[in-house]
């Protein structure tokens, strides 16, 4: 086990520089696979599977083409695509901040979105528990992660419903 950790902690150039005998030993002991042909076939099969999914989806549910845009006809319900629903709902939610003043509802939503994205980018620097990777030993990080994911899901659903 200690050796496996050693091998998998090596940089790419260090693995590359391993002598052929050592590579053969790692493969024999089940700690590594040859890239050729096993791994490369695996990757090609995986890509073929993705292509198959795309073809199936396009056949069963063909891409929709709605009616042509009419700048003089505002539709009743304007909904963004699913991946923007959470952001859309955060704007709707911000309308409740009008107790802070007339300026708040418009700005709070977009500020909240910026803060969320900034936190997401800074995750590795906010998590000061730098050595432990096992989820079971990182209760705070995992709890916060689940909370964030739940919030994104709930906001997406509410964005679709409201």
């Amino acid at each position: 086990m200690a050796e496996q950790t050693q091998y998998t902690k090596k940089k790419e150039c260090e693995v590359k520089a391993l002598p052929m005998e050592e590579k053969k030993r790692l493969v024999r002991e089940g700690k590594a696979h040859w890239f050729f042909p096993g791994h490369i076939i695996e990757q090609i099969v995986l890509c073929g599977f993705v292509v198959l999914i795309l073809i199936t989806l396009s056949t069963v549910w063909p891409a929709h083409l709605g009616e042509k845009a009419d700048p003089f006809d505002t539709p009743d319900h304007i909904k963004p695509e699913w991946y923007f629903l959470a952001a859309y709902y955060s704007l709707r939610l911000a309308e409740y901040t009008d107790f802070m003043g007339a300026w708040a509802p418009k700005i709070m939503g977009i500020v909240a979105q910026q803060v969320a994205v900034t936190i997401l980018i800074l995750v590795p620097f906010l998590d000061r528990n730098v050595n432990e990777r096992r989820p079971g030993k990182r209760p705070i990080a995992i709890a916060l992660g689940i909370l964030a994911a739940l919030m994104a899901i709930v906001f997406t659903i509410l964005g679709a419903v409201v």
């Binding site: 845009a69 859309y88 939503g109």
Partner: peptide, 25 residues
């Protein structure tokens, strides 16, 4: 990419989407 087919939905979603940052001071 969503706007490119120039559909009613895409047009108005883009109206809303481009309106959002306008609230920034």
């Amino acid at each position: 990419g969503y706007l490119l087919p120039w559909t009613q939905l895409a047009y108005w979603a883009t109206v809303v989407g481009t309106e959002t940052p306008a609230a920034l001071p």
